[in-house]
Nucleic acid binder design. Structure first.
Lengths: 125, 125
DNA sequence: TATTCTGGTTACCATCAGGTAACTACAAAA
DNA sequence: TTTTGTAGTTACCTGATGGTAACCAGAATA
């Protein structure tokens, strides 16, 4: 899910996009935010993600230094995730994306039909 | 290349990621920046993109209101692209991603071997 | 007359992302 | 004894992604 060619670029921006420029990572970072959260919680909170993909993304985020993983030697296992300094420093960028989108996204016409077809993520994200 | 499920979310942030959260769009927006640029130029400047994918991305960016397309009725055809107000408003976000990456990206060890394997995008991006 | 130039589009094909279901370990509870 | 719970991993399969090459118009140039 990382783009290897982008990550091998010698343009810093291209490398950044190769690392975090996919659809799941910003969502996951945003869901974690400033809290500490377990794998199972993420799996149920992040909308529509599968355990397989979630595990992959978390591993990459950890490898890239955005995430800290704390595994307790217990049974059943317990693992906690939280953002590193680098990950926390990315949150303001996510906030500005939110602001940008709120400001510029084309507002649906009032009563527009396809509102109904929107999946309800209200409780989740 | 747009994620339809994300775009149908009723979470504004998820919709934003569904729209611009792929690897090519940030790169294209960054390459265009504040200038007016033709299709052929983009095709040669954006590293490793194919005409097909470039055309798709440009069309989506236009549909999503980030891009303005100006087609001159000439032969051979001439088409110019430039960012809309919405697109321009996204540039500072790209800048903060650059700053974030420069600050936190793990610096390669001096003289590290795999530097050589990095594709040279220096002239392009 | 043949070639070039531009901004695409189309068909075809290979690769890849990502989903599902089954499986793991081991302890505690039923 | 069977079930439950956690955090994954694995094999398998399908649909989406994205690359390549060919093709288009029609004027200008050689």
């Amino acid at each position: 899910m990382r783009d290897e060619k982008f990550c091998a670029s010698n343009c810093s921006f291209t490398r950044a996009i190769g690392t975090i420029g996919n659809k799941w990572k910003p969502i996951i970072l945003n869901v974690i935010g400033t809290r500490t959260i377990r794998f199972g919680q993420l799996d149920s909170i992040v909308p529509l993600i599968s355990r397989k993909v979630l595990a992959e993304q978390l591993k990459e985020l950890e490898e890239d230094g955005l995430l800290e993983r704390l595994a307790y030697k217990e049974l059943p296992p317990r693992v906690e995730y939280k953002l590193s300094e680098k990950g926390l420093a990315f949150l303001p960028i996510l906030e500005s994306i939110k602001e940008w989108n709120c400001k510029y996204e084309v507002a649906p016409m009032p009563g527009e039909a396809d509102k109904k077809s929107r999946i309800n993520y209200a409780r989740t994200v």
